[in-house]
């Protein structure tokens, strides 16, 4: 199998009824020679900074987000592969508490590479991908999350604190 087939990145459109699917992720990273699989599933919490949250809307710059996902997977494959399969999917649109916002999976021969690759990719998704979260509160108010500033000019942007994380 080629390296391109081993890396899969997707955006799931909640308005069309799609959400990131951990089962799809696990199927994608499975292979006969892989004894270790790590899975990260990010879901919508019901509380943020002490405020009751009823839902979250995600805005994405799709084209750049998919490029960032792909680069994160390629970097993880270079660091922890070449025997590796990776899957990333993030939701777009409005999600309710408990729904899946993001899934990352890594399959490798042994557990250490799987855990490390999965961690590296989810950190890149959180800190480098053009994705914005608008929280909807129980009192009817909504607010865009403060987030992390992207660093200009390269594909390895590091997070810069921009208020409470």
């Amino acid at each position: 199998m080629s390296m391109a087939d081993a890396l899969a990145c997707a955006i799931a459109d909640a308005a069309a009824g799609a959400l990131p699917d951990p089962a799809v992720a696990l199927r994608h990273v499975a292979a006969p020679g892989f004894g270790g699989t790590a899975l990260f599933v990010g879901t919508i919490r019901d509380l943020n900074h002490g405020r009751a949250v009823v839902g979250v809307s995600y805005d994405l710059y799709d084209a750049l987000a998919l490029n960032v996902f792909r680069r994160a997977c390629e970097e993880a494959a270079a660091a922890f592969g070449p025997a590796i399969r990776l899957y990333v999917a993030h939701a777009r649109g409005r999600l309710a508490v408990g729904e899946v916002a993001v899934v990352v999976a890594a399959g490798t021969p042994h557990r250490d590479e799987a855990f490390r690759a999965c961690r590296a990719v989810i950190e890149a998704v959180k800190h480098q991908a053009p994705i914005w979260k608008q929280e909807h509160y129980a009192d009817g108010d909504s607010a865009w999350s403060e987030g992390c500033s992207l660093c200009g000019g390269d594909a390895h942007a590091a997070p810069v604190p921009a208020g409470p994380a």
């Binding site: 995600y58 993001v102 991908a129 979260k133």
Partner: peptide, 27 residues
């Protein structure tokens, strides 16, 4: 652009999309 974050001192690319990206909060 659709491909990457731009540096402050580089010329604005004229052959594709441009976007302004506030601090991100995915995941």
């Amino acid at each position: 652009s659709a491909e990457r974050v731009l540096r402050e001192h580089e010329p604005v690319p004229r052959d594709g999309e441009l976007a302004v990206l506030p601090p991100v909060s995915g995941g």
